[in-house]
């Protein structure tokens, strides 16, 4: 069966959203949800579903296997480089996330991206683990 890597996005869902939090006092917004506000230090955070679309503030590629506990192939034999981006979701918050596109020539600053839930790896029990990633948007629809 399919499982989410962590309880940080709505799933199953036709239109998945990241689960963040917002401070009732000062409006600071985080991802993932936090108990205490990183700006004013108070424990007044309320869960907030984040916008699905945003723009690429910056990006890079992960060209080598991250070390354990990376859950993908850390041995390097089947490792596929992946993109990583900092995505601004409207005027709400910026989140750091994997990108579905790993070719820097196909990524650009300010590019519109949309959240997708994508297959990541298969665990020892045979379950397919899903993670979240942002995909470039072309002509108003996700590109893949």
């Amino acid at each position: 069966m399919q499982k989410a890597i962590a309880d940080v996005f709505t799933w199953p869902s036709e239109a998945p959203q990241l689960i963040g939090s917002r401070c009732d006092d000062c409006g600071a917004t985080t991802f993932p949800a936090e108990e205490r506000c990183p700006r004013c230090g108070t424990a007044t955070m309320t869960e907030l579903l984040l916008p699905r679309r945003g723009t690429l503030v910056s990006f890079t590629t992960q060209g080598f296997p991250p070390i354990v506990p990376y859950a993908g192939d850390a041995t390097g034999e089947r490792f596929e480089p992946f993109g990583v981006g900092l995505v601004q979701l409207d005027d709400v918050v910026r989140v750091e996330a994997r990108l579905t596109e790993s070719d820097p020539a196909k990524l650009d600053f300010g590019m519109e991206v949309e959240l997708q839930v994508v297959p990541f790896y298969t665990d020892e029990a045979g379950d397919e683990i899903l993670t979240f990633a942002f995909a470039p948007v072309t002509d108003g629809a996700p590109s893949n």
Partner: peptide, 30 residues
């Protein structure tokens, strides 16, 4: 590495984001 030792969730490392070098890549690219 154990991301919880720097108060980051375990999924952050499992997802391949607990990599300091990619931060530097992202910062200099912009």
């Amino acid at each position: 590495v154990d991301p919880t030792l720097v108060n980051m969730p375990m999924w952050y490392a499992e997802n391949g984001q607990y990599v300091t070098t990619k931060f530097f890549g992202m910062k200099i690219n912009r």
